[in-house]
Amino acid sequence: MKFPDTGLEEKEVAFSIVNHAAKSLGFIHVDQWDYERVMFDYKIVHHEGTFYLRVPAYAVKGEIPRPSTIVQIMTPILGKYYYPHGVEYEGETFPQAVIDKCNNKLALLAKTIKAEW
């Protein structure tokens, strides 16, 4: 499930700011980056399963993880985790409580980034 119109899409911001804002809200990106792309993940455990809210970004100037690198944030996505296959995004039905939590997290992330940028 994609989350368009969050105020994050196509925003260009310093990696250090996105990284700090995401970490402060519980997102992680350990071992999930290369020099051009990064994915900030937020794990949601719900009685209907485990879900991941993902905020992808890519470097437009510099290399990740340098703090001064400028990254462009892409459209956040939500997926359901299936052991041992991984995260599925298409054809899933997501609980409204999980969707609401994602919307709240994304609003806080956008607000935090805006305040720091």
Rank of each mutant, 00 (worst) to 15 (best):
P76S: 12
K43D: 06
A110K: 11
P56Q: 07
G86R: 09
P4H: 14
L25I: 03
K105V: 10
W33A: 13
T93V: 15
Q32G: 12
Y58L: 05
V30H: 14
E12F: 04
V45D: 14
A97F: 02
A115V: 02
K2C: 00
E48M: 07
E9S: 07
S16N: 08
I17A: 04
C102G: 05
T69E: 01
L109P: 03
C102H: 09
I28F: 11
L108I: 12
Y82T: 06
I44P: 09
L53V: 10
E48D: 08
E63K: 06
W33D: 06
I44N: 08
L78I: 08
K114T: 11
K23Y: 13
L109Y: 02
T75M: 11
A57D: 00
F51T: 10
V13K: 01
K2N: 13
E10Y: 13
A115R: 10
I70W: 00
I17T: 15
P67M: 08
I28W: 12
A110Y: 09
M39W: 04
I70M: 05
V98N: 10
Y42N: 06
V45M: 09
Y52I: 13
I77Q: 14
A107M: 08
I70D: 00
E63T: 07
Q32E: 14
E92L: 14
V13S: 03
F27Q: 03
K101F: 07
A97T: 13
S16I: 04
S68P: 03
Y89H: 10
V87C: 13
Y52G: 08
W33G: 05
A21F: 02
K2V: 09
E9L: 12
T50H: 06
P65C: 02
D5N: 15
W117G: 14
F51H: 09
C102D: 04
T6N: 08
A107V: 12
V98P: 09
F3K: 11
V18E: 04
P65Y: 00
T75K: 10
P67G: 03
I44T: 08
G91R: 09
D31K: 07
V45S: 13
Y89E: 09
T112K: 15
D100S: 15
L53F: 14
T112G: 06
E63C: 04
S24Y: 05
G7F: 05
V38M: 07
E36G: 01
N103R: 15
P67K: 08
E116L: 12
Y58C: 04
E92I: 15
V45Y: 10
G86E: 06
G7A: 07
G7P: 08
L25K: 02
R66I: 03
V38K: 06
L108N: 15
R37V: 03
E48F: 05
F51D: 07
I17F: 06
Y89I: 08
H47S: 09
E10R: 15
T93R: 15
W117A: 14
E9V: 07
Y58W: 08
L8N: 02
L106N: 01
A110L: 01
R66G: 04
F51Y: 15
T93C: 13
K23C: 08
H46M: 01
L25D: 01
E10C: 05
K111Q: 10
K114E: 11
K105M: 13
S68Y: 12
Q96W: 13
A14F: 05
K101W: 04
V98D: 07
D31Q: 03
L109N: 00
V45P: 01
M74D: 11
I17V: 15
D31Y: 03
V38A: 06
V71D: 06
I64P: 02
F40Q: 00
